[in-house]
């Protein structure tokens, strides 16, 4: 087990190097810092000096990979590759193109993101599993049929409409909660409740339908027949046997996204004006702040790999058959 974790962590290194290389190529080779400067400065006929000073100001006035002018180890370290890419490995994200400390921003904006993402996940999970169980209990009846139609319809609606519709109904028509904004501390709840409700609702279609499929798959297995042959009632078969087995894919599916919750939700955060990492990313994209996008790519990759490792570990806890070696 320990050996397994160590091996997986070691395997993460080449992957992160790969991610780094891809972002490096995307950001500095395909488009040179000169291009970026021209883009940022806006005008096509910017002077060379303006470009140089922009690069100087944002730390791009260095060679890409090798600096022949520096001395000793500096030949490698005083380069864009080292300063902008390698440093990410020690979670030194540097400063954004507008000069803010990215690491500090991330640490601050993480919490509002979690404040939405965690309730959405938990409430959604509880609701979807209960609903799926209900459907499966009444399988092959009209409840089942109508629910499936409803679920497919729900998953055919774009997430944007849930947000727009929710905002319109709850905030504009009924004035129940503020449309958008955020507050610190406990005051935040009234800003959070609408995004959470909408997040849960928009996940019902796909989530419940998937769980229903999982349950139905389990219900056709041989051990369920054995359980029935023992004389167990249908509800005990469902809760005692089927649920236990179906929870394995459900839980591991949840674990893989757990770390990514930190990244926040791009759309709902920007719609509701929540100062989380999702809206941070969107703002960076819109203001074309490459330093932040780069940092978020790296952070996302790290969290994804953590999620994969956690998934494997969670299998050992919920499934007695799995042994990691």
């Amino acid at each position: 087990m320990t050996a397994y974790i160590i091996r997986r962590l070691l395997y993460a290194i080449p992957i992160l190097i790969g991610v780094n290389l891809i972002t490096f190529v995307l950001f500095f080779v395909v488009n040179s810092p000169d291009d970026m400067a021209r883009m940022q400065l806006g005008d096509k006929r910017v002077t060379e000096t303006a470009i140089e000073s922009w690069k100087q100001a944002h730390g791009y006035a260095k060679p890409l990979l090798y600096n022949p002018e520096a001395a000793g180890i500096g030949r490698l370290t005083e380069t864009i590759f080292f300063e902008k890419s390698i440093r990410l490995f020690i979670f030194d994200f540097g400063s954004s193109d507008t000069g803010r400390d990215i690491g500090h921003d991330i640490a601050q904006r993480m919490w509002p993101s979690l404040a939405i993402a965690v309730p959405v996940l938990l409430v959604g999970l509880a609701f979807n599993i209960s609903y799926a169980l209900l459907i499966v209990f009444f399988r092959a009846t009209y409840i089942d049929f109508a629910s499936v139609v409803l679920l497919v319809a729900m998953m055919s609606v774009s997430g944007l409409f849930y947000i727009i519709g929710g905002q319109f109904l709850l905030s504009k028509l009924f004035h129940l909660v503020p449309i958008s904004g955020y507050d610190t501390g406990l005051q935040a709840w009234k800003f959070l409740i609408l995004p959470v409700i909408i997040g849960v609702i928009s996940g019902i279609g796909a989530g419940t339908r998937w769980y229903r499929t999982l349950f139905l798959e389990e219900i056709s297995r041989d051990y369920v027949r054995t359980a029935r042959a023992k004389g167990l009632s249908e509800s005990r078969v469902l809760f005692g046997h089927v649920l236990k087995n179906a929870l394995i894919p459900i839980l591991t599916g949840v674990v893989v996204v757990l770390p990514l919750l930190f990244m926040g939700s791009l759309i709902s955060e920007s719609f509701f004006g929540i100062p989380g990492l999702g809206s941070y990313t969107i703002d960076a994209i819109n203001s074309q702040d490459f330093a932040i996008v780069r940092a978020m790519v790296f952070l996302g990759a790290v969290l994804y790999i953590v999620g994969l490792i956690l998934t494997d570990l969670s299998y050992t806890f919920v499934d007695p058959r799995v042994r990691l070696a």
Binding site: D222, T226, R228, N245, P320, R321
Partner: peptide, 19 residues
């Protein structure tokens, strides 16, 4: 079922609940 009349199946591999 399972009281006065019980049944065992062909595939013991799949007929027991794995978890």
């Amino acid at each position: 079922r399972g009281g006065r009349m019980a049944m065992i199946f062909q595939e013991p591999q799949t007929s027991l609940n794995p978890v």
